[in-house]
Amino acid sequence: MVALRRLLPATQREWRNFLLGVAFASPWIIGFLAFTIFPVGSALYYSFTRYDLVRDPVWLGMQNYIAFADDADFRLVAGNTLWWVLFSSPLGVFSAFLMALLLNSRIIFRSFFRAIFFFPAIVPVVVTAFVWIFLLNIQYGAINSTLQAWGFKTIPFISSPDLMKWSLVVIHMWSQGAAMVIFLATLQDVPKSLYEAATVDGANAFRRMWNITVPMVSPIILFNLVMSFIGGFQYFTLPWIMTQGGPSRSAEFYAIYLYRNAFQWFRMGKASALAWVLFLLILLFTYLIFRTSGRFVYYAGATR
């Protein structure tokens, strides 16, 4: 109660300032309430109902959630998504880090390469999907056409269930321009004196990277990893455009299943329950990463 009283304005003047502040912030507050809080709250309500967008919702209690335990499709898409998050996120961050290291070194045409490596980040994902389809298609893709012309057997990059997810991982690693730029900015901020001292102490290039570079950029590794995990759980556009979750449902991720339920089968209640389960999963993963981050993240300015 005391704490609440401390938060609230005490004098008339403070009240006037407070209300003025709220009035100025009201466009954002109204937008936030109407377009974020209300839909999120509605989704929570609908997740306990059978709702098809058009007819009135029918209250089902926990039935939508309980049904997931017996839903083979749910298990399949959850498995695919976990695979995707566990492989694509670390590899994506690793690839961004490597590109940043390369572009932080003294190579010729450095600015040109920086632009080239960043380029995928500004290409619309639909374009990315089509470019990769034309590269990887077994019949007409540039890579397979070349293989065929040289007398080799073609490789079903995006038409074999065994290779599809790995092909998506490669595309994901290629499109790490945004993460790379953040790494690059951090790398340029690592004090040169640390490298000089390590060189004087006889540290080779690998030791300098492992003992100086990696710890100094570890907060950014954490940041990129968390963002990548969150994006990974919501992965949709590329697999949807490229193969609509195929072949053989190998790229049917959680968000695709959610979309099908919501907009193909009009199971908006079930889709809302799926969305909430996804939200809680992301929350749990993010929490676990932050809880354990103290063991592998170094904050130069941190006090213990």
């Binding site: 389809i133 298609n137 077994i138 019949q139 007409y140 893709g141 079903p156 038409s159 072949p247």
Partner: peptide, 15 residues
């Protein structure tokens, strides 16, 4: 060949 089929169906890019 099922893998070949996917490629053939994508002849104009999108199945």
């Amino acid at each position: 060949g099922p893998d070949n089929l996917v490629g053939m169906r994508a002849v104009e890019g999108q199945g």
